[in-house]
């Protein structure tokens, strides 16, 4: 019996550590360098697609709208996903409060090509595009208003990002 109690405690400690890491990671903005994007494409186990399709730039056709002049939040959502709804509310409010910021929500099921191209593993994943519509970074998991503002700010600090001249 004491062994079993230790087993139970070990399982709970493991679950607690997992949950802490998960909630810490949720919504955090991770900048993607172009070098990393290129390497990620080479190490993909899928057959390498033609170079033109792995462009980190998203076209208005893919987005369904014109990208924002400052930033575009491309939210990949699934229907079986409650945090996707909360994230959509946060990002659409941000887009309406900040000129030049656009929020697009795409369903993963209809956009599997994008999911593979950007190695999206969970929903919601938000690709953060700069003014030139290239992917500058991403956030996954529920995005809070605070996270979204932080990503906008770090976008401004990125090399080649929106800068005052």
């Amino acid at each position: 019996m004491p062994m079993r109690i230790e087993l139970l405690l070990a399982v709970l400690v493991l679950a607690g550590a997992l949950g802490w890491w998960w909630s810490w990671r949720n919504g955090r903005f991770t900048a993607v360098s172009e070098r990393v994007a290129a390497v990620a494409h080479e190490t993909d186990d899928a057959p390498a697609p033609p170079a033109s399709t792995v462009s980190p730039r998203l076209t208005p056709q893919e987005l369904g709208v014109e990208p924002g002049t400052r930033a575009t939040f491309v939210q990949l959502s699934s229907e079986v996903c409650a945090p996707c709804r909360r994230t959509a509310v946060v990002l659409s409010a941000l887009a309406s409060d900040h000129p030049g910021v656009v929020h697009v929500e795409l369903d993963v099921e209809q956009n599997l090509e994008l999911v593979r191209r950007f190695h999206v593993l969970r929903t919601p994943t938000v690709l953060v595009l700069g003014p030139d519509a290239t992917v500058r970074g991403r956030m996954s998991g529920a995005v809070s208003h605070h996270h979204a503002i932080a990503s906008l700010e770090s976008l401004g600090q990125c090399p080649g990002g929106a800068r005052a001249h």
């Binding site: 709970l12 679950a15 607690g16 997992l18 949950g19 802490w20 998960w22 909630s23 699934s78 079986v80 996903c81 409650a82 945090p83 996707c84 993963v108 099921e109 599997l112 999911v115 593979r116 999206v120 593993l121 969970r122 929903t123 919601p124």
Partner: peptide
């Protein structure tokens, strides 16, 4: 435990992997 304490939605984490 993750669902109860942290509100982790397992479906959200696994759905896309299954779809892929």
């Amino acid at each position: 435990f993750l669902n109860a304490v942290f509100g982790l939605c397992l479906g959200c984490e696994m759905y896309l992997l299954g779809l892929r």
